[in-house]
Design a protein around this nucleic acid. Structure first.
Lengths: 348, 348
DNA sequence: CTGTTAGCGCCTTCAG
DNA sequence: CTGAAGGCGCTAACAG
């Protein structure tokens, strides 16, 4: 067993080493490494041989030092990777970036509001070629002079007119509510995570659906949660279902909220109709499979990455784009319950 | 609306700009930026003022160019971020790295075996300070001379003696099987994802548990899946349950496999006991809550990041470490079914 | 076609 | 305590 670990840093060979070994100039090596145009075949051969023998790998950092020549990495700033929604975005954008030889740097974003700004600036200081940001609330105008293309994902940011890729929140909200209204529901609770942009649009869709069938919204059923997690939704659901006049249906405007709603309902032994926003794994395996309004989250990530890549390369010089992905209703059962079936079947 | 977008790259100010503006030398600015030791207070003040006014941010790329002075980013190489298991690792390591001012670069790893090597080398060429790798099968000896510390996560790699953080797979496998054996089960099927290291250890634990109670393993119940996804598990479950002598219990050695098993069982209307490896969201919300052997996945990621950070800084020079996290059984119902209750209750 | 040279932005001596 | 100078590995512009 070695006395010390790890072994002394094996100095990585540089282009100069390669040049010396191949008996050529530095520039020639550079040319070979970058496609090898304008180099005689025989020479290129020799250089490649030296590269192999030395195990040379181009130093991307030095390469990116040159101004304008941005590094070949994109940054992705998002909240909780543990949320499948964010994980899908990350995976999809990673794939697209990887295909173009770009790496993706993840900024660690805790919950604090300042954290995001700090993370973004750290990333910018790493000279990333572009930023994909799932913005938290807060102003993002500080990015205006950063000299780096930015694409917002899932929700726009204030203070900066940049590309944005998102889903049709209002349409989705309308879809969910309209579906419930069509089953005859007139008391539909909607649970909203706090102050997310998306939340407002989904609510707007919910209201529109009501208007479209001349139903009035009971404002006491529009529930603004203090937090966007399952626990908050669970608590709120318990409260609203125990009111004298409980809703006959619940629209949970977020995947985590849906989970909380289901927990509360199981505990209470109640079965109002439920529609969630965003699909989730095992939704179809629950005792009553869950009806959701879903969109192609992966496509969200892919579009964002593609757009950013085009911006970074300068291929795309159009004014800020706004890509909106459609939502679709997936009927599984929980959303098809009628008002009268929503009774109080206690389980135990 | 602007004619062209984005606006011409606002050139980011450099230290030289700051120096000029503050009327000091380059070195002084550098000193202020890096802690400001050995600079008169008044001068430092002036420099800081210039930094603010110009919105200067240190260029991390240039900083990392200096040899030895590794970049302040770690690389994380893993498979499918969509798998909550990997997502947890990513999130946790991200947090730890972030606390030390390190960013995390994700290498895009498709399924192909060569892809991982390519991704790793890309990352190395970006001069990351260290690598966290959840290795696929395949040899990793090419990393030996990379001159970068490596920590493997969840499973060791062949061809390289490096730090490894993993869970007690054998113990977990034993725990699961022992639990089922204790309920009186003697025909326990085990579903294994193909050729993962972890898989072999879990099987070993399963066998050990059998030995410990003098039970024999019916080798026809040791099922090697062609792929590690839910579909493969679903198919295999269907087949094994339709045999003349089906198992009375199933041990699914992976979270995705568990899902497939449950799908098949629901479809068949059968209810053998089921124990899964790795906990998963909503496991407690399924018709029969799912018993699992679980470990602290986030801690896996945290430990890996901490260890790597210490290696990168040179603070830790011990020989390669092997950190093993314990597994615990979480009883929820599916694993507590007895052999006789495992009948064929058809649902429809 | 190929070798040489001048920086990129920063850190680190080394003088002053 | 502060300014000036050299060099990290690479690319690009310029000679040969």
């Amino acid at each position: 067993m070695p006395e010390t670990f790890p072994p002394p840093e094996a100095a990585r060979p540089t282009m100069i080493d390669v040049a010396r070994r191949a008996g050529v100039g530095l520039g020639t090596v550079s040319r070979v490494v970058n496609g090898g145009h304008g180099v005689r075949d025989e020479t290129a051969q020799r250089v490649r041989k030296a590269i192999d023998e030395l195990g040379f790998q181009r130093n991307e950092v030095a390469r990116a030092l040159r101004p304008g020549k941005k590094s070949s990495s994109l940054a992705l700033v998002l909240g909780d990777l543990t949320n499948p929604f964010f994980a899908s975005i990350a995976k999809a954008s990673l794939e697209v970036a990887g295909q173009s030889g770009f790496a993706v740097v993840l900024g660690s974003v805790d919950e604090d509001p300042e954290g995001e700004k700090r993370a973004i600036q750290e990333l910018v200081s790493r000279q990333v070629a572009g930023l994909m940001i799932v913005p938290d609330q807060g102003d993002h105008s500080f990015l205006a002079g950063a000299g780096v293309p930015v694409v917002f994902v899932d929700r726009p940011a204030t203070g900066l007119d940049a590309d944005i890729v998102m889903v049709d929140n209002e349409g989705g909200g309308r879809l969910a509510a309209a579906h419930l209204l069509a089953q005859g529901h007139r008391r539909i609770a909607i649970l909203l995570a706090p102050s997310y942009y998306t939340t407002g649009r989904r609510l707007r869709g919910y209201r529109r659906a009501h208007r479209e069938v001349d139903a009035t919204v009971d404002e006491s059923l529009v529930i603004q949660l203090p937090e966007g997690n399952a626990e908050a939704a669970e608590k709120a659901t318990r409260e609203v279902m125990l009111r004298a006049d409980p809703p006959t249906a619940i629209f949970a405007s977020t995947n985590f909220l849906t989970e909380g709603v289901l927990r509360a309902l199981r505990e209470l032994g109640r079965e109002p109709a439920v529609v969630g926003f965003d699909d989730f794994r095992l939704a179809d395996m629950l005792p009553t499979p869950v009806t959701v309004v879903a969109s192609d989250i992966a496509e969200l990530g892919r579009s964002a990455a593609r757009l950013l890549l085009d911006r970074a390369s300068g291929a795309d010089r159009r004014p800020p784009q706004r890509i909106v992905l459609p939502c679709a209703l997936i009927q599984r059962g929980s959303g098809e319950r009628t008002p009268d079936s929503a009774g109080n079947r206690k389980r135990r």
